[in-house]
Design a protein around this nucleic acid. Structure first.
Lengths: 149, 149
DNA sequence: CCATAAGATTAGAATAATTCTAGACTGCTT
DNA sequence: AAGCAGTCTAGAATTATTCTAATCTTATGG
């Protein structure tokens, strides 16, 4: 084993939140804290609010040494979303984005770069919202402000 | 040729707007009024506001006798959008929707059926909108109200 | 502790929407 | 009528995502 290989193996970033906290977060929503979920949830929840795609999460995870398959990343993103740990955003019909901020808020979408940015909740106000038709109810209101260069 | 085949061949709906009007609409934006564009633009613009996908436009066109390929439908949807005849809406990461209403307005999205419905412009009011960052400008503000059953 | 079952992971195949390619065709100008 | 730029098209290619079925792991109960 070369020096570089040794370092790469050892260089797995330790969670800033503490593994116990992350494991509990998973157990709270009824999910087993497996090795790969821990790695993913650490990336997703140990830093500020983020907007990730399956690809971006997968490459970040593998590049810091986690051994996880792309299929698992998709599985995890969907189960985390179902359990309320993430929120899915449809902005670009070519890719799904997942937002680690599950509180009510809105977005800037930079058309050129494809990046998303949170808008402070108090910077957007909807003073008038229609009622949902007949027996239906509003599950969510999304405001996307598209900006170009 | 059977009676049914004859009827199907003859049964090509004539434009409610008049072909000349549609052809001019295309010429105005710098597009040649070809046979297939005429058929598509007729479906898109001769009725009220609609929300179409490539598939739905393709099947409507072919079912009323127009001879168009799916590739052409995609081409047309994109060029029409670029020329301002349509507006693309990203709501569902699995499919793109194209809206024949290019005026400022917003949408209900029915999660169960995948259908879109316009919201009267005066039924939504944004009383507060943030400024675009630095040298950027806002190109569009989209409000999507998701409703379930 | 260890067997075990329910829950997870995975490689690779499969699917679905969309885009690309390159050759054939057609509307418009001269 | 001829020619060219602009269009159309079948089919291959691409991309994101989902599925499959076999292999592992985690939490549990004895």
């Amino acid at each position: 084993m070369t020096m570089l290989e040794t370092m790469a193996t050892v260089d797995q970033k330790k969670s800033e939140m503490g593994d116990a906290v992350l494991a509990d977060r998973l157990r709270e929503v009824g999910l087993r804290p497996t090795r790969q979920r821990m790695a993913l949830v650490d990336i997703l929840l140990s830093q500020g609010n983020r907007h990730m795609t399956a690809e971006s999460l997968y490459s970040e995870a593998t590049s810091q040494g986690a051994k996880v398959s792309l299929a698992t990343v998709y599985n995890a993103l969907h189960t985390f979303t179902a359990k309320g740990l993430l929120r899915e955003i449809s902005i670009d019909s070519t890719q799904s984005y997942f937002d680690t901020n599950t509180k009510e808020h809105h977005h800037f979408y930079f058309e050129k770069s494809g990046k998303l940015e949170d808008i402070e909740p108090n910077h957007v106000k909807l003073s008038r919202v229609p009622n949902a038709p007949d027996g239906m109810s509003i599950s969510r209101v999304d405001v996307v402000i598209r900006v170009d260069g």
